[in-house]
């Protein structure tokens, strides 16, 4: 997911009897599906967890611009180029809404970017994989955006007002991206033998990392239980992953592509697909900074930020001069 394994700082879930009166009132509001707004009282752990979750999501959008941006100058037609550029632009927009949502919790965009640039903040593991061919752009739209939507659609109902509203906007655009990605894959799958092979190769490389996006099973995680209690996480990782597999396998079949999992089969009794074991060792390595592109992604981000410093400084200096002149004029 765009936010993976978010810690809540709690060690056990407290019953209502153990809560302070304020905290109990807060939990009652959440239980009644009343949105929490920025100025209201909230437990410190809720605020901090939300900052972690929303900023991880924002950072993922920003870092996610890189693997797709890698193909903007090489898109194969003017229309594909415009679609891809608009998509990457939307991601910058999502990053902005999400940083704004995080700012309502009392943290600044600069502080969050500093955490990203220093390597302290995490972003989704998926964006540490390289985009090697044009088909990867289709695969990202189809699989990665498809996986993101699984998580984000329920989050539209999350308990924190600004986050919920950001999700509503983002989901509309993400589902559009997912359709465009699938459309690009369809063109390849129905194209020349080379194009079809390109599409299959992209599916082979992106399938397992996409399943990892949902994070390891959190059935026994106290953090997940707490986040679900707070309604900032709606479904378990395994539930969402299963839903994604069930939705995506028929789409792959329709394209005539093979999902790279020999253990994949329909289980009529469960009414779901069974699928093979995920290589969690790989996932933990990528999270720890050892994915194929972790260093490159961060370096690129830091470079853009540092090289832009003089521009941001100039804009601030100019705005200050302009304001001072307006004041002199008014006086």
């Amino acid at each position: 997911m765009y936010a993976q394994m978010v810690k809540t700082g709690v060690e056990h879930i407290r019953s209502k009897d153990e809560m302070s009166p304020e905290e109990r009132a807060f939990q009652d509001r959440i239980d009644a599906d009343i949105k929490i707004e920025p100025k209201e009282w909230m437990p410190e752990a809720y605020r901090k967890t939300l900052i972690r979750q929303i900023s991880q999501h924002a950072h993922s959008e920003i870092i996610g611009m890189q693997p797709e941006g890698n193909w903007i100058t090489r898109a194969p037609t003017l229309e594909r180029k415009a679609i891809l550029l608009a998509k990457v632009q939307d991601e910058a927009g999502h990053g902005l809404y999400l940083y704004c949502a995080a700012e309502t919790l009392g943290v600044s965009r600069d502080e969050l970017l500093e955490q990203l640039n220093s390597g302290k903040a995490k972003y989704s593991s998926i964006f540490n994989y390289p985009t090697l061919t044009w088909a990867d752009i289709g695969a990202i739209g189809w699989l990665v955006d498809g996986a993101a939507i699984m998580n984000q659609v329920p989050l539209q109902r999350c308990s924190y007002g600004p986050y919920s509203r950001a999700m509503i906007r983002i989901c509309k655009e993400e589902s559009f991206h997912q359709r465009q990605g699938y459309d690009a894959m369809t063109k390849l799958a129905r194209g020349t033998p080379e194009q079809k092979q390109m599409a299959q190769d992209a599916l082979n490389r992106w399938w397992w990392p996409s399943l990892m996006m949902f994070g390891p099973s959190d059935a026994d995680s106290v953090h997940s239980a707490q986040s679900m209690r707070w309604k900032i996480k709606i479904n378990s990782n395994d539930e969402l992953r299963q839903k994604f597999v069930d939705q995506t396998v028929p789409q792959a079949e329709y394209l005539g592509l093979t999902v790279p999992d020999p253990d994949l089969k329909w289980n009529a009794e469960r009414g779901h697909y069974d699928f093979g074991a995920i290589d969690w060792d790989e996932f933990y390595q990528v999270i720890a900074g050892n994915g194929p592109c972790n260093r490159q992604r961060l370096r690129t981000r830091v470079k853009a930020y540092e090289e832009g410093q003089w521009v941001r400084d100039a804009a601030d200096a100019y705005a200050a001069k302009k304001a001072a002149r307006a004041q002199v004029k008014a006086a």
Binding site: Q66, I72, V88, Q89, V311
Partner: peptide
Amino acid sequence: LSEWCGHSPALEEDLALSN
């Protein structure tokens, strides 16, 4: 201009240059 996307001085500029 599309070469700037993702590399500009601020998110607002990524949006504007892409526009």
